[in-house]
Amino acid sequence: MIKVDGDLDMSTADSLVDTVTGVVAGAGAVAVDLDLSGLGFLDSSGIRALLRAHRAIVAQGGSLTVSGARGLVAEVLRITAVEELLGVTIPPRRPGGRPPAAGDEAPRQ
């Protein structure tokens, strides 16, 4: 498990990818879990960093999962629809977990 704290955005994205790929370099088919419980901010550059780390690990036969996301970070993962690809353990959605809107109800398909 690798714990990711602070902010994951354009300024820290490369550092995350370097760290993760550095840790697993030569380790073969490892199962890595990124613990995001200490992460306070995640943007699209951060998502892309997670995807790059994922690709690097899968390329050497391993797997990467993401856990512990909450608040804004969980919301960004949900909106971007990468939960399945990144094996995100989805916490139950809290009613107040995103900006409310009157009569908000997603239409059924």
Binding site: I79, T80, V82, G103, D104, E105, A106, Q109
Partner: peptide
């Protein structure tokens, strides 16, 4: 909706729906 904030449908001054009934990953993934 490809990984984007859900558009909002406004009727009679109220938000009645968010367009995120289904999602896919962003374009390019």
């Amino acid at each position: 909706n490809a990984g984007h904030p859900a558009p909002v449908l406004i009727r009679d001054g109220r938000a009645v729906a968010r367009l995120e009934a289904r999602r896919r990953m962003p374009l390019g993934l």
